[in-house]
C-alpha cells in the first residue's frame, strides 16, 4: 500500500468517524486531537483501523507524544513500520 493510498483511506476514515469536519477542510497538517476532530474515545478505534489497514500491529506503549497529531504524523508512523 502506497503512502498515497494510506493517506486517502485515513482521511476518509477521519471524516467519517469524526462527523465534525468535511473532507475539503481536513488538511494533512490539521491538528486532529488539538481541534477535537477526533477525541480520546476515537484513539483506540484509530489504532485498530491503522492495524487493519496496514496488516501490522501497533505497539501502543511505544507511541510518542505527537504521533497522532495530524494526517502527516500518522502517515510517518505507518511508514516507519511495526517498531514505531
Amino acid at each position: 500500500m502506497t503512502d498515497r493510498d494510506v493517506r486517502a483511506a485515513l482521511r476518509e476514515w477521519i471524516v467519517r468517524t469524526s462527523g465534525r469536519i468535511g473532507g475539503e477542510a481536513l488538511r494533512d497538517d490539521t491538528p486532529i486531537l488539538e481541534q477535537r476532530i477526533l477525541t480520546s474515545l476515537h484513539v483506540l478505534e484509530l489504532i485498530l483501523f491503522l492495524e487493519r489497514l496496514t496488516g501490522r500491529p501497533i505497539d501502543v506503549q511505544r507511541l510518542r507524544p505527537g504521533a497522532f497529531r495530524d494526517v502527516d504524523s500518522i502517515c510517518r508512523l505507518v511508514a516507519a513500520g511495526p517498531a514505531s
Binding site: L33, E34, S40, L41, V43, R64, P65, G66, A67, F68
Partner: peptide, 11 residues
C-alpha cells in the same frame, strides 16, 4: 483507558 492513551499522545 483511551483517555490515558490520548493524554500520552497529546500531553
Amino acid at each position: 483507558n483511551p483517555k490515558h492513551l490520548a493524554q500520552r499522545l497529546d500531553p
